[in-house]
Nucleic acid binder design. Structure first.
Length: 425
RNA sequence: GGAGAGGUGCGAGAGCGGACGAAUCGGGCGGUCUUGAAAACCGCAGUCCUUCACGGGACCGUGGGUUCGAAUCCCACCCUCUCCGCCA
C-alpha cells in the first residue's frame, strides 16, 4: 500500500511510473480525501488538547477539596460531544481513502520493460533443449488416463471441472516432487520448512494484496469469514505480520509445500483440459524477507534456486522478465520461469518469482530494526519453487516413450522408491 | 459447545480510577574503560498521526458504555491458554 504522504508530495511521478497500471485510479479524489481527512484531524486534535487541559484543572480542584466548577464541567461535556461528532465524520473519509490506497498496484522497478501485455515480456535465457521425440507425443491427459494415474472424469463427478484424482504412480509422482523440492530447498538452499494454515482471514489476504481487489478469485467460507489460500505466499508472508524483525535475522527464508485454491473466475474456456489450470493444486513456494538494499540480489538468488529444480529434473525452460502490464498487482519486478511443454510446443509458466519491495510489508506492517535502532519496512519476495501439477505435465510429456511409458528423472527416483519408469499396470 | 484464566512497548513482565505512554529485567543504540573483545558502569530510546517548524494528538486485543476523568470499572466481540465434552 502506498503512503499517502508520498502521493501528496510526488503523485505525478508515481502516476507516470505506474503508467497503464495507474489509469483506473482517481488521483484527484485521493488528494481531496487526504486534505479532508487532515482538516478533520487537526480540528479534533485542537479540541482534544483543550479537553485535556480542562480535565487536569478539574482534577486539581478535586484534589484541593474545592467545590466543582460547573463552568469547566460544562465545557468538558461540550467538547466531548463535539469530538465524538467530529470523529464520526472522519471515519468514512478515512475508510474511503484507505480503500482507494489499497487498490493502487505496486510501482514497477526501473528495470521492468514497459508494455501492455505478455508480448512485451523479455526473454532472459533458455536452458536445455526440447526433447526430440521420434513419434508424435501424447498430451498428458491421454497419457495419464491410459497409464491410469490421472482420473479427470471421476473427479468431475464429485467436484466439477478443474479437479483431478491422482492414482497410484501419479499420486506417488506428485508426492515425490513435493518432497524432492522441499528437501532441495531446505538442505541445499537454506530455507526453513513451513506448513502454514490454508485458511486465512481477511486481514491476511489484504496484507499480501489479494484483497480488496481480487476477492472474486478466491474461495471464500462465509460462515467463518475465511479464505482458502490461492498460494502459500499468503500464509507464509503473514507469518511476520505486525512484527518488527531484528535486522540481524534477515534474510528470513521459508519454503512451504501446500495446496492452492483458485476460483479461476474469468478464465472459462481457458486450459479446460488437464492439469494446467485447476481449482486445487499443489505448489512448493519460496518466501524471503530481506533488508531493502539486498532484495534484488535475493530475487536473483531465488530465481537460481528455482532453476536448479528444473535443471535437476532435466526439463527444458526459459526465464522471462515480465513487462509492466503482465505483472501481478503487488509485484515491483517479476521473472517467470516457463517450462517447455512438448505436446503443445510452447513454454508454460511453472514459476513466478517476484520482489514486492515494501508493498506487502506496508500492508502487513512488517518492519525491521536497523543497526541504527530505526525501523523501516522489510522487502518481501516469493517464487514458486515450483508448481507441482505443471511439473507433472512437463515430466509426462517430456519423458514419454513410444510404448506409452514415462521415464522418471534420476533426481526423483529415490523419492519414487527407486522406480525409474511409469508403465501400464 | 460448557467452565475458568488471560491478551500491556522489540521480548519478558508490573500496573488494576487522576501525577501512567506506562515500573523492572532482557535486548537495541551511544559513550566510559580495554591493544581488541567481553564484563562493568553512565546515557539514549515505544509506535503512529498531525504541523514548514515549535508543538499537539492518538494508541495498553477490537468496538461500545460508565465517569468530570479509564490501561485500570461494565458490556459485546475476537484471539490465546487450562479443564470438561467431542474428535484426528
Amino acid at each position: 500500500m502506498f503512503d499517502i504522504r508520498v502521493i501528496r508530495e510526488s503523485g505525478d511521478e508515481i502516476q507516470s511510473r505506474l503508467g497503464d497500471r495507474g489509469k483506473e485510479i482517481d488521483w484527484k479524489l485521493l488528494l481531496q480525501l487526504d486534505t479532508e481527512r487532515r482538516d478533520f484531524v487537526t480540528r479534533v486534535e485542537k479540541k482534544r488538547h483543550r479537553r485535556k487541559i480542562v480535565l487536569s484543572e478539574i482534577g486539581k480542584l478535586k484534589h484541593q477539596g474545592k467545590p466543582d466548577n460547573t463552568e469547566l464541567l460544562q465545557e468538558v461535556e461540550k467538547l466531548a460531544n463535539e469530538i465524538k461528532a467530529d470523529e464520526a465524520l472522519i471515519k468514512p473519509t478515512e475508510d474511503r481513502l484507505n480503500d482507494l490506497l489499497l487498490r493502487i498496484p505496486n510501482i514497477p522497478h526501473t528495470t521492468v520493460p514497459s508494455g501492455k501485455d505478455e508480448s512485451y515480456n523479455e526473454e532472459c535465457r533458455r536452458w536445455g533443449t526440447p526433447p526430440h521425440l521420434a513419434f508424435s507425443p501424447l498430451p498428458h491427459v491421454e497419457l495419464g488416463e491410459s497409464l491410469d494415474i490421472l482420473d479427470f472424469k471421476r473427479a468431475a463427478r464429485m467436484s466439477g471441472s478443474r479437479f483431478t484424482i491422482y492414482k497410484g504412480a501419479g499420486a506417488r509422482l506428485e508426492r515425490a516432487l513435493i518432497n524432492y523440492m522441499l528437501d532441495l530447498h531446505t538442505q541445499n538452499h537454506g530455507y526453513l520448512e513451513i506448513i502454514p494454515p490454508y485458511l486465512v482471514n481477511r486481514a491476511g489476504m489484504t496484507g499480501t494484496g489479494q484483497l480488496p481487489k481480487f476477492e472474486s478469485d478466491l474461495f471464500y467460507i462465509e460462515r467463518d469469514d475465511f479464505f482458502l489460500i490461492p498460494t502459500a505466499e499468503v500464509s507464509v508472508t503473514n507469518i511476520h505480520r505486525e512484527e518488527i524483525l531484528d535486522s540481524s535475522d534477515l534474510p528470513l527464508r521459508y519454503v512451504a509445500g501446500t495446496p492452492c485454491f483458485r476460483r479461476e473466475a474469468g478464465s472459462y474456456g481457458k486450459d479446460t483440459r488437464g492439469l494446467i489450470r485447476q481449482h486445487q493444486f499443489n505448489k512448493v513456494e519460496l518466501v524471503s524477507f530481506t533488508n531493502p538494499e539486498k532484495s534484488y540480489d535475493e530475487l536473483d538468488r531465488l530465481l537460481v534456486n528455482v532453476e536448479t529444480v528444473l535443471q535437476h529434473l532435466g526439463l527444458h525452460y526459459r526465464v522471462v522478465t515480465l513487462c509492466s502490464g503482465d505483472m501481478g498487482f503487488s509485484a515491483a519486478k517479476t521473472y517467470d520461469v516457463e517450462v517447455w511443454m512438448p505436446v503443445q510446443g510452447v513454454f508454460r509458466e511453472i514459476s513466478s518469482c517476484s520482489n514486492f519491495e515494501t508493498f506487502q510489508a506496508r500492508r502487513a506492517q512488517i518492519k525491521f530494526r536497523g543497526s541504527d535502532g530505526k525501523t523501516d519496512f522489510v522487502h518481501t519476495l516469493n517464487g514458486s519453487g515450483v508448481a507441482i501439477g505443471r511439473t507433472v505435465v512437463a515430466i509426462l510429456e517430456t519423458f514419454q516413450q513410444e510404448d506409452g511409458s514415462v521415464l522418471i528423472p534420476k533426481a526423483l527416483q529415490p523419492y519414487m522408491g527407486g522406480m525409474d519408469k511409469i508403465e501400464k499396470r
